[in-house]
Write a protein that binds this DNA or RNA. Sequence first.
DNA 1: AAAGGTAGCAACCGCGGGGCG
DNA 2: CCGCCCCGCGGTTGCTACCTT
Length: 261
Amino acid sequence: MKTVQEETRKGPWTEQEDLQLVCFVGLFGDRRWDFIAKVSGLNRTGKSCRLRWVNYLHPDLKRGKMTPQEERLVLELHSKWGNRWSRIARKLPGRTDNEIKNYWRTHMRKKAQERKRAMSASSSSSSSSNSSSASGNPTVESIQSTETGEESFYDTGGITTVSTEQKSEELEKGEEGYSMDDIWKEIALSEDKNMTSVYDGCYSEEGCNFSCPPMASPSWGYSSNALWHMDDEGNKLFPFVNDQLFSCYDIVRESLLTAEL
DNA sequence: AAAGGTAGCAACCGCGGGGCG
DNA sequence: CCGCCCCGCGGTTGCTACCTT
């Protein structure tokens, strides 16, 4: 079948590819991407496999809209660290750097534009005092330089601006202390009706750098299709696709045969 | 109802760093 | 010490869905 298509596949992943990847990551862990790419028979680069796993297939990923808490956190951390997306992502369990990056680009830019619009509107009528950044800085970057932490264009009204300095310190010690756990509890409570706490034990500076093994994550969806299922033991997972039950071992065996390895 | 514009998201690309022989 | 390979990160692009006119 797979007569070495000299072209490696690119573009969107299919369900079958996802399944294969999930199975092989389950077997070999989430480190040897090049190896997995070869062995799995996926005609993808290791890089692509890693990206797919990290950004989409990882069982601990939390999907859905950013919560206000997360938004605030992103804002604060970005003001502190800049575009260190992966670093920021480590502070947001279940969120990927890509997701945060995209979020920032879209939402924050929008906010910035709104803000800019509002400022130019107000400056035409009455020059606002805080128009320090109105000197023509359309980009988010300029606005995010809110080192003081109080100039937040994040004006949802409900959000009390916390001194970034102050908050950052709390974040630094967040691993064990109050802040992060509480924040994530809030998030979990407010948003996850279905998800049991996928964050348990997940949060650390290494963050969700799961070491993969027996990917035990309660509930997690593959788009509309449930991809994971727990057995009675509560620790063994089988992928589902469209109500079909697959065994990872079948998939792996199949792949290995086709890959002639 | 159709067309155009915009937002959101998934995926790719290039580069740098670290590990290993 | 040097070169190679692999991994991870940040930036960018492209596609799709949704919204507006």
